[in-house]
Design a protein around this nucleic acid. Structure first.
Length: 468
RNA sequence: GAGGUUGUAGCUCAGUUGGUUAGAGCAUCAGAUUGUGGUUCUGAGGGUCGAGGGUUCGAGCCCCUUUAGCCUCCCCA
């Protein structure tokens, strides 16, 4: 028999890991609730047609498609059709409803848009929801990249106010402060990127320009310039882009310089106004707290892959020197996402937390709280016979008092039971033997100190509770 | 889709220019010790050396093919 394994890019989460992951979820959830977001869950699978064409060409390739079931039940003519279609699928990148009609969700935003359109009559707009569920991508796994990973999204749909953008920045800020992860929150606007392509007199090259610009961190300006050239941007355009990239200073200074350079571009001016207004709202929401805004940085080289963003875009990266990790969160404004499903004129904005990467970062920083690794607090040793009955009675009283307790289920050898408790990291062991039972008492052993006391059950419960 | 790298015990890994019956640590089980764990000591079990083929008197090691994981590019969280 071959060794068992799990699919590439997926992981098991052992008890300690689940606790750490829950710590992240349990940090985020109250923040979302505090900001008035409501919980939502959608199915793991969507109809393929819901997902295709929403994430760009590359995104379509990465959607996990589900093979239709019940193929063996089909009529002969359907089988023939299926064989023809599957030949096409095998010969090139192609999909067909005869072969696959459903797919695993690729992100949480598109299913959310689909949900909003389907339930538009029940919802009170602006509708704010948060969602914490796994998503799947058929990507090549590598460090910090999985095929199954969790996202936590917060979106507002049905409002164009920039207060929403500012609130989402507050959520990011608040979450990473609580998780003790040092971050830089980069903000930009698709409108500035559009303006940039206008300045180059190549408005149709916006995608090429943004893809190249996004690599500035990695390959530097010379590399970006080369890539721009390869992508067919004229020297005059590249010179203009360089001028923009070379702008330095704080956010206000950068935006002032951009408005100078982009004064003839309507979308440029719009984008700059939106960013400065968003930052002003943010300041107000943070109680005018200057220093907290310092890690929000206007960065014109920020691109973001998803092609439905239209306005402000945002990305979070950990800026601790020891941590090498891509973005751990991102989001932006999408003006007409629900339009794809037939509901026009509804604007949305949202952010996403990449839980798995955040986990890796916190682990690397050693910032998970120590006391997370707790489960059972007390184990009761099983001495068998009448003592077993006595043990069950004590067990029941512990639980009634809210103490997480378990009894060793077999009357196994004493040291085996002790070794088990030790390996589990259980804080206390209770010994109800003949002597204790006859006195209606128990011996309570503190497994950290090794100290042992003879107590009544009530005293024992009190002692354990006092230590919490 | 392109490139790099690694597959040897449950886990982490040694294994010499090719040479007898493939090793260690950890883990597991048993005993020292039937009411005292985390320390120690003794012993035991556990392997088609990723798979298939080739060279050779002889292959864990050399050659070819294949497969899986990890890492990088592309793209992304």
């Amino acid at each position: 028999m071959s060794k068992p394994s799990i699919p590439q890019g997926t992981r098991d989460f052992s008890p300690a890991e689940v606790r750490k992951r829950q710590y992240i979820f349990n940090t985020l959830r109250p923040i979302f609730e505090l900001y008035g977001f409501q919980p939502l869950e959608t199915p793991s699978m969507e109809n393929l047609i819901t997902l295709t064409g929403k994430y760009g060409e590359e995104g379509d390739r990465l959607i996990f498609k589900i093979l239709n079931n019940g193929l063996h039940e089909k009529k002969e003519e359907d089988k023939t059709k299926f064989r023809l279609e599957i030949d096409k699928v095998l010969s090139k990148s192609y999909s067909s409803p005869a072969v696959t009609e459903r797919a695993l969700r690729y992100d949480l935003t598109i299913p959310f848009a689909r949900y909003v359109v389907m339930h538009q009559n029940e919802l009170a707009f602006p509708f704010r929801r948060y969602q914490m569920q796994p998503v799947w991508r058929a990507d090549r796994p590598q460090k910090g990249r999985y095929r199954e990973f969790w996202q936590c999204d917060a979106d507002v749909v049905g409002s164009t106010s920039l207060i929403n953008e500012a609130e989402l920045l507050c959520i990011y800020q608040s979450a990473f402060v609580q998780l003790q992860v040092p971050v830089v929150i980069k903000v930009n606007s698709r409108k500035l990127l559009a303006a940039l392509s206008e300045i180059c007199s190549m408005p149709d090259k916006m995608m090429d320009i943004t893809i190249a610009m996004d690599k500035l961190d990695k390959i530097g300006w010379v590399g970006v310039a080369n890539e721009l050239k390869e992508r067919g941007i004229a020297d005059e355009g590249i010179w203009q882009i360089e001028k923009v990239i070379n702008v330095t200073g704080n956010n206000d200074e950068k935006l002032a310089a951009y408005s100078d350079i982009m004064q003839h571009s309507t979308s440029g001016i719009e984008g700059i106004n939106e960013l400065s207004k968003t930052l002003a709202y943010y300041q107000e929401l943070m109680g005018g707290n200057g220093p907290t805004a310092s890690n929000i940085v206007v960065d014109i080289s920020l691109a973001r892959g998803l092609n439905y963003y239209t306005g402000v875009i945002v990305e979070v990266v950990c800026n601790h020197p020891d941590v090498k990790m891509g973005s751990i969160g991102g989001g932006g404004r999408y003006d007409d996402l629900t339009g794809l499903f037939g509901l026009k004129g509804l604007s949305g904005v949202g952010v996403s937390f990449g839980v798995d990467r955040i986990y890796d970062v916190i682990e690397e920083l050693g910032m998970f709280p120590k006391q997370l690794a707790e489960g059972t607090q007390v184990m009761i040793v099983n001495f068998g016979g009448e003592n077993e009955t006595y043990a069950l009675n004590i067990l029941q009283r512990f639980r009634a008092d809210g103490i997480a307790a378990e009894v060793y289920p077999d009357a196994a050898k004493f040291d085996k039971q002790m070794k088990y408790a030790n390996k589990r990291g259980i804080a206390y062991v209770v010994l109800p033997g003949d002597e204790e039972r006859q006195k209606a008492m128990v011996s309570l052993k503190n497994f950290t100190t090794g100290e042992q006391k003879l107590l009544s059950v009530a005293e024992c419960i009190g002692s354990i509770k006092a230590s919490n």
